[in-house]
Amino acid sequence: MFRKTNIFVFIVLAALCVLLLTACGQTANNSQNAEPEKEKQESNTETADHSQYKVALVLPGTINDEGWNATAYHGLELIKEAGFETAYSENVKTSDYEAVYRGYASKGYNLIIGHGFNFLDPAKAVAADFPQTMFGVTSTVEYADPNVFAIDTNSSDAGFLAGVLAAKMTKTKVVAVPCGLEIPGIIRYATGFKQGVEYVDPEIKVLSSYTGSSSDTAQLKELTAAMVKQGADIIAPNADQAGLGAFEYVKEHKDLRIIGVYGDQKALAPDQILTSAIIDMPGAIEQVAELGFKGQLEAKAYVFGVKEGSVWLTDFSSDVPQDIQDLLKDVIEKIKNNEIEVKYVLE
C-alpha cells in the first residue's frame, strides 16, 4: 500500500517547505529591521530618543483582518510614526506565544504587547526570565508583579454612553443590546449599557443576549428581530462583523434607530444611526508605549476609557435633540470628574 516513492515525495515536499520557511523568516526579519532604520533617519530631528525604545507586538491573527488585529497593528503604526523602533509577529499560534515572547525579549525589546487575554499565561511564564522587559497583555485586567501589566479599553464607558442615549431616545421604553461572542470586551459593553439606561430611567427594560458568533450575520439579524418583537426600538449591537446583521434588520424597519460601536459605523445605516461609541484601541497602545518610554510602566491594569480620552461619541445625527446632546456632553464631563462612576464589571 505504502510505496517508497510516496515516502520520498513526502520528504522532498517537507524539505521544500522548511527551506521556504527559513527563506520567508529571513526576508521578514530584514524588512522589519530595514523599515525602522529609514524611520529613524526621518524622525531624527524631533524625537531622536524614541528610537532607543523597542516595542514588539504579537498578534493571534493577520494584520489586515480589519478588526481585532488590525486595530492593534494600527496602534503599532502610530508608535512607529512617533519614532519608536517597532516589530510585530502575526498569525502566531497559541503554542508559540512563549517562544515568540522569548525571541523578542532576548533581542532586547523593552515592551512586548500580546494582543488578547490568552497571552496572559505565556507572559507570566516568560516574564521572570526577562526582568528588564515589560510585558503587556490586552483585553484583560489581570497583571503580575513585577513586569506583566494589563491594557484594556473601557468598553463599559462606551456602553454607558450608548445606554444613556438609548434610554433618552426610546419611545417604547425597551432597548436592546444584541451581542456576538461572550467575551470580556463585549460583556463589559453590555453591562455598561445597562448602567447607562438605569442612570436615566430604571423603568426602561434592557434586552441583552449573545449569539456566540462573531461572523454569523443571519443569526444576529434574527436575534435583533426577536428583540424588536419584544418592543425594542433602539438597538446597540456589539458583535464584531456579525453586527452587520443588526444594521441590516434596522435598515428594513425605518422606525428603528441604531447605535454603532468601536469605529464610526455611520456608513452602514446613515439615516438611522444616532451616533457611534468609539473605543480607541490604537490610541491606548500609543499611550502605553509613551508611558514605557518615560519608564513609568508598572505592573497594574491600565484601563483606557472616557477619562483617558480613549472612548467618545461621534457627531450625533439630526434625530438627537439638542438637550439630549447636551446631557451626554454633561455625562462625559461627569465621568471625567468622577461624579459618575461606571462600574467596570463582568456581570
Partner: peptide
C-alpha cells in the same frame, strides 16, 4: 434573501 450582503464565514455551520 435572508441578508442583503456577504460577510466572511457567514454560513456559520
Amino acid at each position: 434573501a435572508h441578508m442583503n450582503s456577504f460577510s466572511e464565514l457567514m454560513t456559520g455551520g
